[in-house]
Design a protein around this nucleic acid. Sequence first.
RNA 1: GGUCCGUUCGUCUAGGGGUUAGGACACCAGAUUUUCAUUCUGGUAACACGGGUUCGAUUCCCGUACGGACUACCA
Length: 511
Amino acid sequence: MRDVRVRFAPSPSGALHIGGVRTALYNYLLARKYGGTMILRIEDTDQNRYVPGAEEYILKSLAWVGIQIDEGVGKGGPYAPYRQSERKSIYRQYAQQLVDTGNAYYAFDTEQELDLMRERLKSAGDSNQQYSSGTRLQMNNSLALTEELVKKKLEAGDPFVIRLKVPANQEIKLTDLIRGEVVVHSSQIDDKVLMKSDGMPTYHLANVVDDYLMKISHVIRGEEWLPSAPLHVLLYQFLGWQNEMPQFAHLPLLLKPDGNGKLSKRDADRMGFPIFPITWTDPSTNEIAKGFKETGFLPEALINFLAFLGWNPGTEKEIFSMPELIDAFTIERIGKAGAKFDIQKAQWFNQHYLRAKTDQELADYLFPFLKAENITCSQAKAEKICLALRDRITFPADLWEQGMIFFFSPTTFDQQVVSKKWNSDAVKTFSAFVEEIRSNSMLTSDSAKASLEKVTSGLGIKTGQILQALRMALTGGASGPDLMLTMEIIGVEETVSRLKYALANLKIVNP
RNA sequence: GGUCCGUUCGUCUAGGGGUUAGGACACCAGAUUUUCAUUCUGGUAACACGGGUUCGAUUCCCGUACGGACUACCA
């Protein structure tokens, strides 16, 4: 087997979509599995679509999820430059080679002429309106025009493109690692533009030339490239590189969670989940799209989730670290069908990875929130809060949302609990409880429990019956972390003061 | 429209000529937690349809339907 060299080749036309991250991930896993090389190439041959900041964004995103680049933009390497705009001159020479060998030709057609041709074919009932073997001779190109005229146009500096001369009647076969053999008839492929009139190559040429020059062994990319893969095979043949041609693997698409179609930013916005790895600010509109990172997703959770969208190890194990993914990954186990993006499953992974953290690590997530509110809190208290909350959180921010009760006394109370559970038993219990725990200087989870039980048994009340009311009195809400632990964390004084406040302000609705 | 690709529980998927069609998420129920959540146990739920081939097809073949991608001097 030849050296594994794979590339992730995004175009810097905006933020990196989550589907792109998955493509990068699969490339990376293959590279690492076989001790190969992961290359990042920036495909910026369309100057109109260039978005400033996009390249930097891609680099940052990959770094955040833990996909390391061995070679390429931002890293360098033996085949530099890795930005296609900086390789412009290279492509020209291969396009020329194609012209010289009769596999490509100059075309001078204007946009209007092309439109006209398509209109004409359409009204003639042609099923596909292509610039191809059937139509090329009626167009303005070096195949139809006299040699002299072509020369004259070239010398006069008339704008031109170079098109591939796709053979008329040929079956083009390729083996896709995921889909098996794919056969396409050459009549279905049009004479694709290889070099644009601005002197830049199109994707097709640049891609094939670079993959060859960079000795790429496997092209792992989205399914949207499958229809043009035969064209690329043709290019490898015409350039004489069929023996160096990489193996292809076309990945199924990520689909929207509901309905049909591929996942788009619109869907993400509509359903309220992120689609970009990290927050992206559109430079033209200043619109901000919150990323997975800022939403609170852990990179290891995102990676684990993404890896399983279209791939699985064939076992029942679902939690995989990056090294484990590298070990288990094979292209053969990538599925063929598109996968709907299920944000709930992503959240489940997140929850799992969050719970695997120690209280100390969780506290590190909590402190920034406290700092933002100017709240001082000891390490021990923060860790205790995390202990109380750790089984209840999906995102780090939940630590703060649910942890606020430890720092702020309630001023409003859950009315349902008030009407159902705030009764004379509760009032009697809490009045006695306040006196009971007041004598303790230290309130621990255990002592709180003991004190409460002492009071209720003295009063002949079942502890369970007043617990809801106690929670509501202490936190204002109807649900939350372990109550005894909550009291321990807020301490005697605060517990007493909150109970007194509730006792003074709450009225019994249903005696 | 044309070409190509696809189709197992609601979702991600395992499986593969004879299985009680397995797991996970979600959902529901019970237990535990003297509260909510957690946890545990259990449950509902799938082979798109029609023809073949075969003793037997969810699995192989062919159609149909449905879905998707592509059909630019975008990638």
